[in-house]
């Protein structure tokens, strides 16, 4: 290999790292910056002041907790609906199956702003505005595309014979579902749960229009903080929001891959 090619390769790696990690570095720097004025490349004064502020101010922790609560409930509701629905799509002939599946895509198929402003005006009329359950409802609806689609694909990938053997050996439909189908679908279900969880955690538009100003999720608070030129608070919240994503990334990397292959390979 000649020098030119090595140089080119290194340059490519650096560029990729810059694109991926660059914005994150900015956030981390901002979160520790007491003073950072243009055109300085790094902050003039470092410190933990804003981190302390976030953990001292109940408001910020509350909104983080609110975001987490919403995300967990959304995952639960989304799966509660998606698992039976997906099993139906995967195993039974359902009239207009395609149309129904595309229907779940609808909330995500159009620009988020008009969709959620519309939803917010409806929710305000029926008393779901400014309310945690309004956001949960909106998130659940919009996340169904992830959960239903992924879990349907998972169920479809499980050969019918694996269920038929169980029936043949004396298991009822329900018993077969809980002892064979569901355990085999766990990797796919976890994958869809992670998708829904992260999407709900990072969702801004619905949380803003339905919740604000009465309740503020972490993303909404982050937005308000950065609008008030408080980049430090916004950065701290951003880092706190990234933590669950990274944790889940590790879980996927560590556990899901092998399990997935074992489950799907049979």
């Amino acid at each position: 290999m000649n020098v030119a090619r090595i140089t080119l390769r290194i340059a490519a790696v650096v560029l990729i790292l810059f694109i991926i990690i660059g914005p994150l570095v900015g956030i981390v720097l901002w979160s520790f910056a007491h003073r950072w004025y243009w055109p300085n490349p790094i902050p003039q004064e470092f410190g933990l002041r804003y981190w302390q502020m976030v953990f001292r101010q109940g408001r910020i922790l509350d909104s983080l907790l609110l975001s987490l609560t919403i995300a967990v409930i959304v995952v639960g509701l989304s799966l509660l609906f998606a698992i039976p629905a997906a099993y139906g799509f995967a195993r039974y002939r359902i009239p207009m199956e395609r149309v129904l599946l595309v229907l779940f895509l609808m909330p995500q198929a159009f620009p988020q702003l008009p969709v959620f402003i519309n939803l917010a005006s409806i929710f305000n009329r029926i008393g779901l505005g400014g309310n945690m359950w309004g956001i949960i409802f909106a998130h659940t609806m919009a996340s169904l595309v992830y959960s239903v689609w992924i879990v349907t694909a998972t169920f479809r990938s499980i050969p019918m014979e694996l269920e038929q053997v169980a029936r043949n050996l004396g298991a009822s439909r329900l018993k077969t579902f809980f002892t064979i189908t569901l355990p085999l679908a766990v990797p796919g279900i976890i994958a869809s749960a992670i998708f829904v969880f992260l999407w709900s955690l990072g969702e801004f538009t619905a949380a803003f229009f339905i919740g604000a100003p009465f309740i503020q999720t972490a993303t909404v608070l982050m937005y308000t903080a950065s609008m008030g030129y408080n980049m430090q608070i916004a950065s701290v919240i951003a880092i706190l929001l990234i933590i669950p994503s990274i944790l889940f990334m590790i879980i996927i990397e560590r556990y899901l891959k092998a399990e997935y292959l074992a489950g799907m390979g049979g």
Binding site: V165, L169, A171, S172, T179, I180, G265
Partner: peptide
Amino acid sequence: PPEKRDVSMFFQNYALWPHMTVFDNVAYG
């Protein structure tokens, strides 16, 4: 229904359950 017939079927592709050991596969019935 299939579960009440007391016949055992052997499937062409074996249809062993990948999430269970040999013991659990055989002991299922």
